[in-house]
């Protein structure tokens, strides 16, 4: 069936709620309203207010209460309306969800899926376009997933529901309705922790994820390049093998992400390649990312975000090395 990413996530949630009777969704406006992006549309009618629950407007509360549910053996799927508001629940995520398993040596675990729309490009108001993947990858203990296609979104989400971990499920807002794709109506899994090589080539490796995957693909197609495109899909734990293997093969690496450049995921990838494969590179590693500033108001978005031109120029520069 042709689905956009919003449909695919909806279909995955439906499958999880049907399969696991202890699974519940909780968040702001996810009930009758079907979520501000309509991602949970119809689930309230199908499963009722006991399983698809509108909560008080309090992000720390939503995540903290979900942690309690998870410890008690349920599978909570909290939704944070926008990633920019997840910082109100940051303490619950890094001080508890990330550490509960380790502080109790696996006596208590927190299996839950924390969903939130991330990244920009949709001319939204302040705080509605954040890319928090580096924050949530840094402490260790949280799995961070960010799909770039409807197919991956459904498979990764269902996979997350079968793991006994806290999975931060980051949904790029811009991709909710950007394009449709054939997605099975039945349940299936996409492996978490494994990157997806979406294009094979020899001249350079482009490592990317989330909103940037499609943009990179377009540029590579337009320029008719022989390039490896690695879509990380899982930010933490990172798929070292896929990155290093591709870097060694092409000898030229470009990393593209929407989050700010400094201390970002690109820095981590770059360091890993430097540690494992620096003598097999024939050019410095390059990064295309947003500038190291907070996400601007929508009027400035076009100057802030990476675009096809920036990626294209970076590729030219890298290939000229």
């Amino acid at each position: 069936m042709q689905m956009n990413m919003a449909n695919a996530i909806n279909s995955a949630l439906d499958a999880i709620l049907t399969e696991n009777p202890t699974s519940v969704m909780l968040g702001e406006d996810i009930g009758k309203d079907g979520g501000v992006f309509r991602v949970t549309d119809g689930l309230f009618d199908k499963y009722g207010p006991g399983r698809v629950m509108d909560t008080p407007l309090a992000e720390s509360g939503i995540i903290g209460v979900s942690i309690g549910m998870a410890i008690a053996g349920m599978l909570p799927i909290p939704e944070i309306q926008f990633a920019g508001f997840s910082y109100l629940g940051f303490d619950q995520l890094v001080s508890h969800a990330a550490r509960y398993r380790s502080r109790t040596r696996s006596t208590f675990t927190v299996p839950m899926i924390v969903r939130m729309p991330v990244s920009g490009g949709v001319r939204a108001l302040e705080h509605h376009s954040e890319s928090p993947e580096a924050y949530y990858s840094h402490p260790g203990g949280l799995i961070v997933v960010e799909p770039s296609s409807p197919y991956d979104a459904k498979g990764l989400l269902i996979r997350a529901s079968h793991m006994h971990d806290t999975v931060m499920f980051l949904e790029p807002t811009m991709l909710y309705r950007l394009f449709k794709q054939e997605v099975p109506e039945s349940s299936y899994e996409v492996e978490i922790g494994k990157a997806n090589k979406i294009r094979e080539g020899d001249d350079l490796s482009i490592i990317t994820y989330g909103t940037m995957v499609n943009m990179v693909k377009k540029v590579v197609e337009k320029k008719n390049l022989s390039a490896d495109i690695v879509d990380l899909r899982t930010i933490n734990p990172i798929d070292d093998d896929a990155i290093i293997k591709s870097a060694k093969k092409t000898g030229k690496v470009l990393i593209v992400h929407e989050a700010p450049r400094s201390f970002g995921v690109g820095a981590e990838i770059s360091a890993r390649i430097a540690e494992e494969a620096i003598f097999e590179l024939d050019a410095p590693i390059m990064r295309v990312a947003s500038p190291s500033i907070p996400y601007p108001f929508p009027g400035y978005e076009q100057y802030y975000l990476p675009n096809e031109e920036k990626i294209s120029k970076a590729i030219d520069k890298l290939l000229a090395e």
Binding site: G50, G64, V65, G68, M69, I71, M74
Partner: peptide
């Protein structure tokens, strides 16, 4: 971390009711 555990208590209580 002071008071953070209270939310877990509410969540566990929710699970008992559920």
């Amino acid at each position: 971390p002071v008071a953070t555990q209270l939310l877990h208590a509410t969540g566990i209580a929710f699970a008992q009711k559920y």
